[in-house]
Nucleic acid binder design. Structure first.
Length: 875
RNA sequence: GGACGAUUAGCUCAGUUGGUUAGAGCGUCACAUUGACAUUGUGAAGGUCACUGGUUCGAGUCCAGUAUCGUCCACCA
């Protein structure tokens, strides 16, 4: 007999198991012979850090589906990769060199900086890959991609060229979000809004040729230097007479018109607004519509420009104080109020955003020739993508409907440069530099992309780099090798995409738009959102809070399987879930349980082996038939739930079968009525059913039987054998089960010592030994005609328990009376339902039939209980 | 302001196309060391499914509204 330790030790075997899988070659779909395919291009984590629990959660879901499909015999590809993550990585690396070497990127220079960051990403990628393997993800590492790999990048840049030709991208002056710290423009989605305490400052602007004033309210007094109008709502009675007049801009002594615009809210502040088109998004819109001048008074370094008069050169905050003081001296400061203001901050470095006008590259998401957003909405509405959970489809559509043009140029160094060249006024867009060009001639950045316009007579490449999401939005087909790659041809459109709900607008939405535009097809057929993982109190994990759970120590301590279960069990797609150590521990306990079923099986029979097929002749007892029948139902239901992408319910079904049915009942009974073949058969099936969820322990056990000759990973997913489903066995087994439970109940409620066997009478009772053992009774003789016994019965099993001396008769009477009352009310309820004409005509036949049966069942139970109550009178 | 989500046992959460007496884990209480497992077993207590109305033979589930909490988007100068 094999010596099997009491507990499964994950850290001892997980690495070996993973190696076994990897060396088998079956992570690579080329080694699977099948006409069916399954592909999930994995979301590439940012190659600048390490794996966190959010990655682990996503990978677990991806791996569950991937392993399931592989066991179903499909050529299965989980394609891993890493993303260069432009701004974020640049920020991370700048911090690193600042800390370690005390230098800034300018001191290194663009080219060298780029090379260093590249090396850094390669290093981090390697580390992260090792972490990903520890989660157990069955990805094909031979195909691993990096977002700056030349092949994939070329495809992504070709898209830009195509979009340029189709008029879907343009370079233009628009107001953008400028991060003074990162020194780059940002897309709207890269800006966070944070509410803070601030001041609302009321300034009086004199009306020209009058001694009157008009008051405006602002949270940023310094921007008044760039005011080119004052706007009021046309319906505002208060200002009706002032529309069309001219105000004098204090400090600058500039004449500005008073205009009317419907976007001005009458109730807020004074109802009059200073308009600074160059430094506020709404003002910019209004300025465009009213053809106002745009005066840039703040530059990319957050300093006042020459247009700011005597404040030129001052930092924004400094200018604010000075403007404030000067207005105060002039008596033009009316008052100041406290106000909650919504500050825009950079997602990556948390610096306050400076809205300013800049010449940037934009994607026109609603172009005449091809509307990216409308095509995406259309595809969704046509049901080309199954979205899990379903309601996220509405969120996506809503997001598209509100989508504005997308700024894709960044003034950072880390990332792919625009395939655009300039010579004087000429512009060339294409993958290769035109003749005479010198693509390596990038110069130091000034923040103004126009500086790339060389005047030297040579072609000079645009210095801008792409927004990361421009390339990652194309990930599904760039990684597969659009349009001629073998993988593209066999795996696109992919089957599954899984991501956290927080990156829906960044990523899911863009992949759909790009996929449809470039390939004419959706990038994936199923889109599954996970919720966010939060801490025990429901807070988001964050570095500053220090409440994150690092997945790797958890794997060390409890095993990857336990972590996987804790991340996906009892969860709903798109719904946030909490994670904490006790929860992981609880699932570790489950793996121990599974292990011990295995251990028991070996101990009970020295030739124990797993068995793939079984026939009805092998089923000797009610319990055998019951457990095998229940197993078939479990196979059916588990499969059904996975197909419906409901992994949580699939696992719940399996857990109930494994723990409640198999371990707590069948294994206990098996100790008396041994049937190693049935046990081996059931065990084989649960190993397979559990494998996608907990791959390590299941494979480990499987290898104990197969010693590397066969892999559980590529074993066939079980199919239910309907001939083994016995519709009647459940009721039959329930009699046995219920009688045992009844006795246990009696023991518990009357405090009968668990160690003491209760004498009972009922010699011919079926399942005698099982009842004796599991309920700890001693059947000492036949039922007698008389005597102070408590009779219990379930179906055809009846026992007389000799416990008169041990129990409290009154208590038992009360219990029986209560049960009788419950049964009576249930019966009355069903009777009324069955009397209801509408129910009889409206409800399906099965339901009516079920109700009738249930009523019969209750009635027979009621009779028994009444009889028992009567018997008690004898005591 | 717009969109979306949540509200079910003390806590954390499941609950499939509407159909038994609404479930699990943890926690609590009582008992147990019986041939795997104390990382265990047995049993118990604990819920007017947020509220109001509607549809239906039948509602935790569908519809409308209300309340509270939360998320995202837009944004008030």
């Amino acid at each position: 007999m094999k010596e099997i330790p009491k507990n499964y030790n994950p850290s001892e075997s997980e690495d070996d198991i993973y190696k076994l899988w990897e060396e088998s070659g079956f992570f690579n779909p080329d080694n699977i012979d099948s006409s069916e395919r399954y592909c999930n291009v994995l979301p590439p984590p940012n190659a600048n850090g390490e794996l966190h629990v959010g990655h682990a959660s996503g990978y677990t879901v991806m791996d569950i589906f991937g392993r399931y499909e592989r066991m179903n015999g499909k050529k299965t590809l989980l394609l891993p990769g890493k993303d260069h993550a432009g701004i974020q990585t640049q920020v991370v690396y700048e911090k690193k060199i600042k800390k370690e070497r005390g230098i800034a990127r300018d001191e290194i220079g663009r080219e060298k900086f780029y090379d260093e960051v590249y090396e850094f990403c390669m290093d981090r990628s390697g580390y992260m890959r090792s972490q990903e393997k520890r989660i157990g993800i069955s990805a094909d590492w031979s195909r691993e991609k990096f977002s700056l790999d030349p092949d994939g990048l070329k495809i992504a840049l070709e898209t830009f060229v195509k979009m340029y030709e189709d008029g879907l991208v343009y370079k233009g002056n628009r107001i953008i979000n400028w991060c003074p710290s990162c020194g780059t423009a940002l897309a709207d989605v890269e800006v966070l809004h944070k509410e803070e305490d601030g001041k609302l400052c009321y300034i009086k602007y004199p009306i020209k040729d009058s001694d009157e004033f008009i008051s405006v309210a602002t949270t940023r007094p310094e921007t008044m230097l760039g005011d080119t109008a004052i706007a009021v709502n046309p319906k505002d009675e208060k200002y009706k007479d002032l529309i069309g007049k001219t105000a004098m801009l204090p400090l600058m002594n500039r004449e500005i018109p008073i205009i009317s615009d419907y976007r001005i809210e009458m109730g807020f502040g004074t109802g009059a607004v200073k308009i600074t088109p160059a430094h506020d998004p709404l003002d910019w819109q209004i300025g465009k519509d009213h053809k106002l001048e745009e005066l840039q008074v703040i530059d990319e370094m957050s300093e006042i420009t020459d247009l700011g008069g005597k404040y030129a050169g001052q930092k924004v905050m400094e200018a604010r104080r000075n403007v404030f003081a000067d207005l105060s001296d002039l008596g033009l400061l009316e008052k100041e109020e406290d106000l909650k203001i919504n500050k825009s901050i950079c997602e990556r470095c948390k610096t306050v955003i400076e809205p300013l006008i800049s010449k940037q590259w934009f994607v026109n998401v609603d172009a005449k020739k091809y509307s990216l957003k409308k095509e995406a909405i259309k595809a969704l509405k046509e049901g080309k993508i199954n979205v899990y959970p379903k309601n996220f489809e509405n969120i996506l559509i809503n997001w598209y409907e509100n989508l504005n043009d997308w700024c894709i140029s960044r003034q950072i160094w880390w990332g792919p440069q625009f395939p655009v060249w300039y010579k004087g006024e000429e512009i060339y867009v294409g993958l290769e530099a035109p003749d005479g060009g010198n693509p390596d001639s990038a110069k130091a950045m000034t923040g103004n992309p126009d500086s790339a316009k060389a005047t030297t007579g040579e072609w000079v490449q645009d210095e801008n780099t792409f927004d990361t999401w421009f390339s990652s939005g194309q990930w599904p087909y760039t990684t597969l090798g659009f349009p001629e790659g073998k993988d593209y041809k066999q795996f696109y459109p992919t089957d599954m995409m899984i991501m956290g709900r927080d990156i829906l607008p960044f990523w899911a939405a863009r992949m759909i738009m790009f996929g449809l535009y470039k390939t004419g097809n959706v990038p994936f057929k199923n889109l599954y959102f996970t919720g966010l993982i939060r801490d025990k109190e429901g807070h988001k994990f964050s570095k500053s809070r220090g409440n994150g759970i690092d997945p790797l120590p958890m794997i060390d301590k409890y095993g990857a399987d336990a972590l996987r279960l804790s991340l996906v069990m009892d969860t709903t797609p798109g719904q946030d879930a909490r994670l904490y150590e006790e929860k992981i521990e609880r699932f570790r306990n489950f793996t121990t349980k599974l292990w011990n079923i295995y251990r028991y099986s070996n101990q009970s029979d020295e030739n124990f082996n797993i068995v793939e097929e079984i026939s009805t002749e092998d089923l000797k007892t009610v319990s055998d038939r019951w457990v095998v029948s229940e197993l078939q139902k479990t196979i059916q239901e588990t499969t059904k739930f996975i197909e419906a992408k409901n992994i949580s319910l699939a696992q719940e079904k399996l857990r109930v079968f494994t723990w409640d049915i198999l371990a707590d009942w069948y294994v206990e009974i098996n100790k008396i009525e041994k049937n190693a073949k049935v046990l081996g058969y059931v065990f084989d099936k649960i190993l397979k059913l559990w494998h996608p969820f907990i791959p390590f322990i299941t494979e480990k056990i499987f290898q104990d039987f197969h010693a590397g000759k066969k892999l559980l990973m590529v074993s066939a997913w079980p199919k239910a054998d309907e001939s083994l489903i016995d519709e009647n066995v459940s009721a039959e087994f329930d009699n046995l089960k219920n009688i045992i439970t009844r006795i246990r109940n009696i023991r518990s409620s009357y405090r009968i010592d668990a160690a003491m066997a209760i004498d009972a009478y009922g010699a011919e009772v079926s399942g005698k030994e099982i009842i004796e053992r599991l309920a700890r009774v001693k059947i000492v003789g036949s039922a007698s005609e008389s005597g102070n016994f408590m009779r219990i019965s379930e179906g055809d099993i009846a026992l007389d328990l000799d416990i008169a001396k041990l129990i409290d008769v009154e208590k038992e009477k009360t219990r029986l009376q209560n049960e009788i009352k419950n049964l009576e009310s249930s019966i009355t309820r069903i009777e009324n339902t069955l009397k209801n004409e509408k129910f009889l005509t409206g409800a399906p036949k099965e339901i009516i039939e079920e109700s009738r049966n249930r009523m019969e069942e209750y009635k027979s139970k009621l009779e028994t209980q009444r009889e028992l109550l009567g018997n008690l009178g004898a005591f």
